[in-house]
């Protein structure tokens, strides 16, 4: 009987689906950062859950929330104070793009299943919207002496107290490597990548 009910509730939804539905794995506390070195420049590509950056993921409706988002975006626009490279490298930001992306899955019907929320590890009790927000940022940085970058200090964790870790992928002429930088060990050792 249980199976039948399940089948009935799934089928109409499947038949009426007109658009593709997909939702990224979204884990609070963890973001991703890509760093690519080439010539005298490097690019940074950051993706972090709204919960890490501003502490909430619903649309910023109150003035207070909007201020938080504004402050976060303006701080995110200064990548070199979040990801600190040695002074000797003489780096300056060439471009910075920060965006707040809302991920939303369809409309929520009564009794619909919440399986798409399973990945996030907590249930919304009051907030019934299946909504996640993510901050996306892309930076291009140019340096006078890029070889001096032997490590990057992640002050990012200090600025955003809800963030716990960043999965970092680094690409350099020497190849590609993955690292995990955590709040407790917020330094990325890049020796061996040049």
């Amino acid at each position: 009987m249980k199976h039948l009910v399940l089948a009935l509730s799934v089928f109409p939804a499947a038949l009426s689906a007109e658009q593709t539905r997909s939702l990224d794995a979204h884990m609070h506390g963890a973001g991703t950062l890509g760093i690519a070195f080439s010539g005298t420049e490097f690019s940074l590509s950051l993706e972090a859950p709204g919960a890490d950056i501003v502490g909430f993921e619903h649309a910023a409706l109150s003035a207070e929330d909007r201020d938080l988002v504004q402050a976060a975006i303006s701080d995110l626009a200064k990548p070199l104070s979040l990801f600190v490279v040695p002074n000797e490298a003489g780096c300056t930001v060439k471009s910075a793009n920060v965006a707040l992306a809302m991920a939303q899955i369809g409309k929520h019907e009564a009794g619909g299943d919440h399986s798409d929320e399973a990945t996030e590890g907590h249930a919304h009790s009051e907030d019934q919207e299946t909504r996640h927000s993510e901050f996306h940022a892309e930076y291009l940085i140019t340096c006078q002496n890029i070889d001096a970058i032997d490590s990057i200090r992640f002050d990012y964790f200090e600025r955003f107290p809800n963030s716990q870790e960043l999965d970092v992928q680094v690409v350099s002429p020497k190849g590609a490597r993955a690292y995990e930088v955590e709040r407790s060990a917020a330094d990325l050792d890049l020796r061996g990548m040049f």
Partner: peptide, 28 residues
């Protein structure tokens, strides 16, 4: 075209709306 764009392309592929795709860096 440029290594600087690797992550832009990777994200574009991973978030490609029409089809679920995955792009990986072979070294990683």
């Amino acid at each position: 075209e440029s290594p600087l764009q690797i992550f832009t392309v990777q994200r574009a592929i991973n978030e490609y709306p029409e089809e679920p795709l995955l792009a990986v860096l072979p070294g990683v």
